[in-house]
């Protein structure tokens, strides 16, 4: 079981209020991703849940029990750190078995659990090596192995993939998602990368300066962002924002339109502009277009567009996918 609720939780480091009052419900078995820009308090929030930091005020409940004062080891949570935090002087086997040894589990059961974790994570051949002799991806798996043998109520991941190269990151993303499918245990995953959030999450929590901006499924956030911050943060390339007279026509302070919802034409359209940069990805083409009286617009077209730097193009927004924001940034 792994139902976690935060009630009026705040956290201050001295004078600095890092997390002003925050409420959050995490259901059993959910894959929840905390996403937000660097320094917004994601790690702090995760460490509060883990018990590595004390809350300044508020209550943390795990499975309905007040866990605010419970020490980290007794909360039944396992954490995977960004630096992996493996024990360098122990073999992989001993690293994975460490939490079991601390729980004074008998040797046969320890061995059984380590073996099965190693099998799930493809570490069987590396059990007798030291962490220093492993690649980044393997170290990552050892850290996950050390977490799963404890059979915790929930897993906490703090940017676990940020030290891996791009290809490995995609692989590990899939492996963690598969692990979640097979274990069906609550997972809380912290990242600043909205792609990881969109691809892995059941539920995304968007944080900004310690506040929750919006909670919802990936597609909820994509389709109906609650405010301008979420609209700009979720989706890649970023949403275009247009303010001034053009926004006034739609009765808003600012309007937002995603690059994939702009129609491109070489003959006619709502706005005329010049292509500054064209990025040809094969499957897509990203165009950065300068339009008079607006910030540069990003346009995404499928396939090979045959448009290059300096070409004149016409752009029309898809009215159905237009987002309107008021002066405070709230969605209208």
């Amino acid at each position: 079981m792994g139902k976690i609720s935060l009630k009026n939780v705040t956290k201050a480091f001295g004078e600095a209020m890092v997390i002003p009052s925050l409420d959050l419900e995490i259901e059993d078995g959910e894959f929840v991703v905390f996403v937000g820009p660097s320094g917004c308090g994601k790690s702090t929030l995760l460490r509060l849940i883990a018990g590595l930091e004390d809350v300044t005020s508020g209550v943390i409940e795990i499975d309905g029990r007040d866990a605010t004062e419970v020490p980290p080891a007794r909360r039944g949570l396992a954490m995977v750190f960004q630096s992996y935090a493996l024990y360098p002087h122990m073999s992989v086997r001993k690293n994975i078995a460490f939490p079991l040894k601390m729980a004074k589990m008998d040797a046969a059961e320890q061995e059984r659990r380590v073996t099965s974790a190693a099998k799930i994570l493809n570490l069987t051949d590396y059990l007798d090596r030291r962490p220093g002799q492993l690649s980044g991806g393997q170290r990552q798996r050892v850290a996950i192995g050390r977490a799963i043998v404890r059979e915790p109520a929930a897993f906490l991941f703090d940017e676990p993939l940020s030290n891996l190269d791009a290809a490995l990151r995609v692989n590990m993303r899939l492996e963690i998602s598969e692990l979640h499918q097979s274990l069906a245990t609550t997972m809380i995953y912290v990242t600043h990368d909205q792609v990881e959030a969109m691809t892995m999450a059941d539920k995304i929590v968007v944080l900004h300066a310690g506040r929750i901006e919006q909670v919802g499924s990936p597609l909820d956030l994509y389709r109906s962002p609650a405010n301008r911050f979420v609209a700009g943060f979720i989706g890649s390339p970023k949403m275009n924002f247009i303010s001034g007279a053009e926004a006034g026509k739609h009765g808003a302070h600012t309007i937002g339109i995603r690059p994939e919802h702009l129609a491109l034409s070489t003959t006619e359209g709502a706005w005329q502009g010049k292509v500054a940069v064209a990025e040809h990805l094969g499957s897509d083409t990203f165009l950065y277009v300068n339009v008079n009286g607006m910030d540069p617009l990003t346009v995404r077209t499928q396939g090979e567009a045959g448009i290059h730097h300096g070409d004149t193009v016409y752009i029309s927004p898809d009215a159905e996918h237009l987002h309107r924001f008021d002066a405070s940034g709230k969605t209208i």
Binding site: P71, A73, F81, A85, Y87, P99, M102, R146
Partner: peptide, 8 residues
């Protein structure tokens, strides 16, 4: 911190 979470 990791060892603390591991129950040491």
């Amino acid at each position: 911190e990791a060892s603390e979470m591991d129950g040491a």
